[in-house]
Design a protein around this nucleic acid. Structure first.
Lengths: 344, 344
DNA sequence: ATGACCGATGTCAACGTTGTCATGGCCAGA
DNA sequence: TCTGGCCATGACAACGTTGACATCGGTCAT
């Protein structure tokens, strides 16, 4: 599909120094060099030193392409996320990376832009490198995704959401649970005309699931959702302000808003401040994710704190554990925490 | 006893379907399958269809390990950044990724935590995969970095800073130029007792260079820097607030602060608001990077807007262009823009 | 008609490494 | 002294793919 037609970067002129060069220089066999470089057992100290000296002299770097091809295993891990420019994923990635690099694994990055087709394409390209595993966001994928991964018989860990069934294992929180908690909180605080604001056209299925759970709980509590505003644009502070303006223009009676994320919520909070609407008295504002920025604002943003870094850490750990025992069916609920803040 | 200590991911039991399997099923030679899969020319439509059918039937995915080994070239690009959890790099990465994926290239991610030793380690691991090129942040590296890259004879693009000489090519802005512009602005606005706040222990050399240029320009303008506060911690809104508190406690006469980044600047702005200090009257606040959040705050944050996404895009493009012509000596100045905002 | 040429397809070896098995020396226990 | 076993090292082939070159019809300008 995304075949690169005859990519030739440069004429393969200069041959890189190989294991054989090191072997010749140090007067040992290829395999001995291989053993030394890998730190394999059964190598005498004398031979090791000799080989190391030669390797250093030549500036030798093993070619993992060849090694991985022969052993049929690599230290590559495919990491697939919807976006990276803003939002939660950089923090998750940070957690993933810290664990992987500690274990000598290399993350290869794929970005889907919340497009299922793109996800399939990206994953196909990555699987061609025979990664030892896959870590991907969300649990809602094209059927082809599962098929491709099954073909390779490698472990997959999905992160974000644990409400939906996972291919093998998942790490995250219950988005539905969080929505219920927020609905309860708003009701308890006396809000009776709640609204909702989302973004990205609700492409991440979990955000839709979360909103639906929110609506359902509100209905059950007898205070149905007044109105909602789902922007097709990516989530951002500015968009949050604009969405809030639109929502309140349409339904001025709204007395509280649950946002799909904190960027939008802060945009909403700032928008209200500019309009002279006081939170929490005139309007309650609660976001999702619990970004640190919200703790420092003059009015501390109420939000659902999600363990993003930790999610990355646990996802990577779970993947690593698959080397010892199968992970099928494992579900790690990291839990969320409602940050009461001052805006609700 | 006969167990090797070598960590093995999984017993290489199941052989993945290879090009040969496809060849057998479709009754053609290996090389023909190879040609079809790569979209190489000189293949009849009839043969192509037959092969594709077989490939689909078997769920065949080419093994790039083998391909790259044979051709001595890969579509991997090593991307090395200091951090990813917060700050500017996710946005740069986003730009890089968008261009690379459009060109069929795969980014492999390495994170250095602002540690030179870590940078060397990370890069070594990545080079073992024979990437077609390297994109890395900053121009200040361990000598080993240059040596390793020279060994492989692959292109490198450094991004962020164009004040320092690059290994081959660089994309970014002049941090010193930005510092001078800020000093001039503060002077022009009548601030006479400026302070400075930084983070990360000034590990990124460019931030130190920027501060030094700032101090130098101020001195030349006859309004020397009053005081500075460099936190060893990573930059964050909270840390920005704390640093501001410390700085002002120590030097209450300060009437303007230049921050090393917007997260800290926003923290400072919020801190001052809580303390009843009005910006820009009581204190001028100006950040660096121009994050969007600063545009939405009740008091629009003054800042130096840096083209982060664009920087990633241009860095990746420059790397791609190296396939056609050498990039040595190329320097792309993307320029900055002072956002006047309301806090200065 | 004819040789040059081109397109379609195939054969073979090699990319750089490592798994497997073989070899020879050495030592402990019988 | 002999034997079995372990250790250090080596020879060889194979991982899955593709570049180089060969082959075989057929086309075309002469």
């Amino acid at each position: 599909m995304t075949q690169t037609v005859l990519e030739r970067n440069r004429p393969p002129t200069a041959r890189r120094t190989t294991l054989r060069d090191v072997a010749r220089l140090s007067g040992v066999s290829d395999i001995s060099v291989s053993r030394v470089m890998r730190g394999a057992p059964s190598v005498s100290a004398e031979l090791r030193d000799r080989v190391m000296a030669a390797a250093d002299a030549l500036g030798y770097t093993p070619n993992r392409l060849a090694g991985a091809l022969k052993t049929r295993s690599s230290n590559l891990v495919a990491v697939v996320v919807p976006s990276i420019g803003n939002g939660v994923f950089p923090e998750v990635l940070d957690g993933i990376e810290s664990v992987l690099s500690g274990a000598g694994l290399q993350p290869v990055l794929g970005i889907t832009q919340y497009e299922r087709a793109q996800e399939v394409r990206v994953l196909r390209d990555m699987l061609a490198w025979t990664p030892m595993g896959v870590i991907m966001a969300g649990t809602d994928h094209d059927p082809a995704v599962g098929a491709m991964i099954a073909q390779q018989q490698i472990p997959v860990v999905e992160f974000m959401d644990i409400d939906q069934p996972a291919m093998q294992a998942a790490v995250g929180i219950s988005h539905r649970g969080a929505a219920v908690a927020v609905a309860d909180l708003l009701a308890e605080r006396g809000y009776r005309r709640p609204g909702y604001i989302g973004a990205w056209g609700e492409k991440p299925d979990r955000s839709r699931a979360r909103r639906l759970a929110f609506e359902q709980r509100l209905a059950a509590l007898g205070i149905p959702l007044c109105d909602k505003e789902i922007s097709p644009a990516p989530a951002s502070v500015e968009e949050g302000g604009r969405s809030t303006e639109r929502l309140l223009a349409r339904s001025p009676q709204i007395d509280a808003i649950f946002y799909a994320n904190d960027d939008q919520a802060l945009g909403g909070l700032f928008h209200c401040q500019r309009r002279g609407l006081r939170a929490p008295q005139d309007i309650g504002i609660i976001g999702f994710n619990g970004i640190r920025m919200g703790l420092a604002t003059p009015i501390v943003l109420s939000s659902v704190e999600t363990p993003r870094y930790q999610m990355g850490v646990e996802a990577a750990r779970l993947l690593l554990s698959a080397r010892e025992a199968p992970i099928d069916g494992k579900l790690v609920d990291l839990g969320f925490r409602i940050r009461l803040g001052e805006s609700v």
